[in-house]
Simulated scan of single mutants.
Amino acid sequence: MPFKELRASGGASGQVGRDLAPHVSKAVKGMKDAAEGLRDWSFGTALEYAASEWDTALEGMRTRIGRSGELLTDTANGQQWTDSRIYDSFLKGYER
């Protein structure tokens, strides 16, 4: 895969991870607020637990998407570096 496409994919993944942050926070805050408002009800504690679990899951997903973007960019950089070294090695073989 061309390193330019890897970089573009990495940038897009990183942007998705950043864009998700406020949405994840808002969704979890809404659940936590609802749980707080219902804490005297029997299912208030269950809703609070569910909010905590969703917070962990969604934040983990968001973090992994962002990290995938970083890794795609690192892969592109490594591929470009390797291609450059191979090219230089072949050129040196023909210089006499």
Results as ranks from 00 to 15, higher is better:
residue 1 M to N: 09
residue 2 P to F: 10
residue 7 R to D: 11
residue 7 R to E: 13
residue 11 G to Y: 08
residue 11 G to D: 01
residue 11 G to A: 03
residue 12 A to H: 11
residue 12 A to F: 15
residue 12 A to Y: 12
residue 13 S to W: 15
residue 13 S to H: 14
residue 14 G to S: 13
residue 15 Q to S: 15
residue 16 V to R: 04
residue 16 V to H: 08
residue 17 G to N: 09
residue 18 R to E: 04
residue 18 R to S: 07
residue 20 L to N: 07
residue 20 L to Q: 02
residue 21 A to I: 01
residue 23 H to V: 04
residue 23 H to F: 05
residue 24 V to E: 07
residue 24 V to K: 02
residue 24 V to W: 04
residue 25 S to D: 15
residue 28 V to A: 06
residue 29 K to E: 11
residue 30 G to C: 00
residue 31 M to W: 04
residue 31 M to N: 03
residue 32 K to F: 06
residue 33 D to P: 09
residue 33 D to R: 01
residue 35 A to T: 06
residue 36 E to K: 13
residue 36 E to N: 11
residue 36 E to C: 03
residue 37 G to N: 04
residue 38 L to M: 10
residue 39 R to D: 09
residue 40 D to Q: 10
residue 40 D to L: 14
residue 41 W to I: 02
residue 41 W to Y: 14
residue 41 W to Q: 13
residue 43 F to Y: 12
residue 45 T to G: 14
residue 47 L to V: 06
residue 47 L to I: 01
residue 48 E to C: 05
residue 48 E to S: 06
residue 48 E to Y: 03
residue 49 Y to Q: 14
residue 50 A to W: 06
residue 52 S to Y: 13
residue 52 S to M: 07
residue 53 E to W: 00
residue 53 E to S: 03
residue 55 D to M: 01
residue 56 T to L: 07
residue 56 T to W: 02
residue 57 A to H: 05
residue 57 A to F: 10
residue 58 L to K: 04
residue 59 E to C: 03
residue 59 E to D: 08
residue 60 G to Q: 08
residue 60 G to W: 12
residue 62 R to A: 03
residue 62 R to P: 05
residue 62 R to M: 03
residue 62 R to V: 01
residue 63 T to S: 12
residue 63 T to M: 13
residue 65 I to Q: 00
residue 67 R to K: 14
residue 70 E to A: 10
residue 71 L to I: 06
residue 71 L to G: 02
residue 71 L to R: 11
residue 72 L to P: 00
residue 72 L to D: 09
residue 74 D to C: 08
residue 74 D to N: 09
residue 75 T to H: 11
residue 75 T to M: 10
residue 76 A to G: 00
residue 77 N to A: 13
residue 78 G to T: 09
residue 78 G to V: 01
residue 79 Q to R: 08
residue 80 Q to K: 14
residue 81 W to A: 15
residue 82 T to S: 07
residue 82 T to F: 00
residue 83 D to A: 14
residue 83 D to S: 14
residue 84 S to P: 00
residue 84 S to M: 06
residue 86 I to E: 04
residue 87 Y to W: 01
residue 88 D to Y: 02
residue 89 S to P: 04
residue 89 S to C: 08
residue 90 F to I: 14
residue 90 F to M: 15
residue 90 F to A: 15
residue 90 F to Q: 15
residue 90 F to L: 15
residue 92 K to L: 10
residue 94 Y to G: 05
